[in-house]
């Protein structure tokens, strides 16, 4: 006979809420991208509405998690699930915020003369949207392999960001009238790059939730543009590791 029915129901509700929040975050990124790429300003309000709803869900889910920890003393897989929920709602909230930031700069792009398309923002946006989608899917389906794959695509996003950055810089140097919209485009590229990072964070937590393994920083970051620009902290040796090995690491 299954015991702890109330606890089981609470976990199920939590899972549904996080899945809903994740779906809304995915939707907000999709609509924000649609807004700037296809010039659909009417979507701005929708993205703002989604942002508010995502924030409300974050608060609600955090309360649910704390209640479960306080009242049900979860362990093992249950505790990993709750800690994952607590962590990824911050990522989902940030994703929602960045979507909102993207539509905020829409007006500033009005005079960009199609710069959005020229610097390959649509391609980057498409890739980022698919990463958010797959991160959400990996969480819902508890799929650590799908979660690990996100990291390879993040390297691609980093490269695209770098390319776009240089391209916009060139356009701005050639035509100073484009400086304002160019800066806003760089901001959008930056927001998209951050959204991809948050998708990877979600992926990392899904790996932990399912396998109890913590991903090694090496797995996370294979090729990053900032490597050449700042000191990279020394990475621990070996592959992924479990929590009880953390102190030794």
């Amino acid at each position: 006979m299954t015991s702890r029915i109330i606890f089981q129901n609470e976990l199920e509700t939590l899972n549904q809420d996080v899945s809903t929040m994740a779906t809304l975050a995915r939707e907000s990124v999709g609509k924000a991208v649609q807004c700037i790429v296809n010039h659909e300003p009417e979507l701005r309000e929708e993205v703002e509405r989604l942002d508010k709803e995502i924030y409300r869900l974050e608060q609600l889910i955090e309360k649910r998690c704390l209640d479960i920890i306080g009242l049900q003393t979860p362990v093992a897989g249950d505790l990993r699930t709750i800690s994952t929920c607590l962590k990824i709602i911050t990522d989902l909230d940030r994703i929602g915020r960045y979507a909102s930031d993207i539509v905020e700069v829409y007006d500033c792009l009005a005079s960009s003369n199609g710069l959005v398309r020229q610097v390959n923002i649509p391609n980057m946006a498409e890739l980022v949207t698919s990463m958010v989608e797959d991160a959400v899917k990996a969480f819902i389906e508890r799929d650590p392999e799908a979660a690990r794959e996100l990291f390879e695509r993040d390297d691609e996003i980093d490269r695209l960001y770098d390319t776009n950055f240089r391209a916009v810089l060139t356009y701005m140097m050639e035509n100073p009238h484009l400086i304002s919209s160019g800066i806003h485009l760089i901001l959008i590229a930056r927001y998209l790059e951050r959204i991809a990072d948050h998708s990877c964070n979600i992926g990392e937590r899904v790996v932990y939730m399912v396998t109890a393994e913590r991903m090694n920083p090496k797995e996370r970051k294979k090729d990053h543009k900032l490597n050449t620009m700042c000191e990279v902290p020394k990475e621990p040796d070996g592959d992924s590791y479990s929590a009880h090995e953390l102190e030794e690491k």
């Binding site: 299954t2 015991s3 702890r4 606890f7 979860p74 362990v75 093992a76 897989g77 249950d78 505790l79 990993r80 396998t211 109890a212 479990s242 929590a243 009880h244």
Partner: peptide, 17 residues
């Protein structure tokens, strides 16, 4: 308590058995 290797252990410590 984080990741038991046996399903029976997980069931017991999570209170499902």
């Amino acid at each position: 308590f984080e990741k038991p290797t046996k399903e029976l252990t997980e069931k017991y410590i999570t209170g499902r058995m």
